[in-house]
Computed example of a mutant assay.
Amino acid sequence: MPLTAISGTYQIVGFSPDGDTVCFVPDDPGAFAAAGLRPRVTPVGAIHLRLDAIDALETHYKPHSWHQQPELGDGAANALLDLLGFTDVQWDERHRVSAATPKTRPGYILTGFVDKYGRAVSFAFAGMRAGGTKDPVYLEVPELRRSVNHQLLGAGWAYPTFYSKLYADLREELATVSVAARAAKKGVWEHDSALTGFELKSQDQLQNQLVILPKLFRRLVDYFLSEDTSGVDLAGFATFLKAQDDKLFTVPAGQATSFAALVESRRQRLTLTVPPEQLVFVEAPPKVLPKVPPEA
Rank of each mutant, 00 (worst) to 15 (best):
S147R: 15
F237P: 00
T101G: 10
R94H: 13
Q244M: 03
P142V: 02
R38E: 04
Q244F: 02
L144S: 06
L57G: 04
Q244L: 07
G45Q: 05
D233G: 09
V44Y: 12
F86D: 05
P26S: 06
A175G: 15
G187V: 03
F217Y: 12
K247A: 08
S226C: 06
T229W: 06
K242E: 08
A194S: 15
L241D: 00
F113K: 11
Q278W: 03
T87F: 11
A124W: 01
R218W: 05
L270F: 01
V188D: 00
G112P: 01
P136H: 00
K185Y: 05
F224K: 08
V25R: 15
T59L: 06
H48T: 10
D233C: 10
V211R: 07
Y10R: 06
Q90V: 15
L289C: 08
V221K: 02
E58A: 12
A76H: 07
K242V: 07
H150E: 01
S258F: 10
K201A: 11
P39V: 11
D74M: 15
V44N: 09
L170P: 01
L279P: 02
R50L: 09
P293Y: 03
L213K: 12
L166G: 03
E283T: 12
L144I: 09
V25S: 09
K185C: 00
L84Q: 05
L72V: 07
L200A: 07
K291H: 09
Y159Q: 02
G156T: 01
P285F: 06
V97K: 01
G112S: 09
I109K: 02
P276S: 13
